[in-house]
């Protein structure tokens, strides 16, 4: 009789915290169930509490990986963008989140990893490595990467400059980049406020853009970032 072939999950010898902190995360029955339930609740809160309105869902590419880029003024931005996707897709959608802010303390780490399915983005020490990780994520079929190219939440609700990282990621690839504009999030939950307020939110999704003819050099990356910023502003 042949020996059985066992195939332990790659994270079987990690502690639960290591599993949450690590990326890519391996599928976990309980995490999937908790994420589905939490996202249902978040969607309900956004719909009832913030009267979230979503326009342009038809622009979201089907059957291929894509990137959603948006202005960033609030912790409500990522949940609003996730709410635009079918519920089953939240396990394959990854908001890039600052590793130094979202992946250090346990309660925030647990929320980021379990509920938001966030991808740790090292914006300080090694952003290049994080962009490479984003690229690998987009190589797989059906993944959604959520990026806020301003790098942080704005303090006045305006749209700041987009960092060229998004340009390096998009240049020379066929990955569709979907510009999105979130209106009202700054009024609902600005930086520094402890709890969200029931202010109206509106998410507008624009037509996807591809940058396959651009080169992965600084000038082109800056140009791509500027183009995307203009597309987001145009959705206002």
């Amino acid at each position: 009789m042949d020996e059985w072939h066992y195939d332990p999950t790659p994270d079987f010898d990690q502690t639960p915290i290591e599993r949450l902190r690590g990326f890519p995360r391996h599928p976990n029955l309980f995490v999937y169930a908790a994420r589905t339930l939490a996202n249902l609740i978040v969607r309900l809160i956004l719909r009832l509490g913030n009267r979230l309105e979503i326009e342009g869902r038809e622009h979201l590419p089907a059957g291929e990986s894509f990137v959603m880029v948006a202005n960033h003024a609030s912790h409500l931005d990522a949940p609003a963008l996730l709410a635009a996707l079918p519920l089953a897709q939240v396990h394959r959608a990854f908001p890039a989140a600052a590793a130094d802010y979202f992946f250090t303390h346990l309660p925030v780490l647990a929320f980021s990893a379990i509920v938001m399915n966030a991808m740790p983005f090292d914006r300080k020490e090694n952003p290049k490595q994080s962009i490479d990780a984003c690229r690998q994520l987009l190589d797989a079929r059906g993944h959604v990467l959520i990026l806020f190219p301003e790098g942080t939440r704005t303090t006045d609700g305006s749209i700041g400059a987009f960092k060229p990282g998004i340009g390096f990621l998009a240049a020379g690839t066929d990955v569709p980049i979907v510009p999105c504009h979130i209106d009202g999030a700054f009024r609902a939950w600005p930086k520094g406020a402890w709890v969200p307020r029931p202010r109206k939110l509106k998410l507008r999704i624009g037509a996807p853009v591809r940058f396959r003819d651009m080169r992965r050099v600084k000038e082109d990356a800056v140009q791509i970032a500027e183009t995307l910023r203009n597309r987001v502003i145009a959705l206002q």
Binding site: Y6, D7, P8, T9, F12, P27, L29
Partner: peptide, 20 residues
């Protein structure tokens, strides 16, 4: 769940769910 992870059974969510 540890047993299921170590043996690879965990990838079969139907079986894992029934046992849970």
């Amino acid at each position: 769940i540890e047993f299921a992870r170590a043996t690879g059974l965990y990838r079969d969510w139907w079986m894992t769910s029934i046992v849970i």
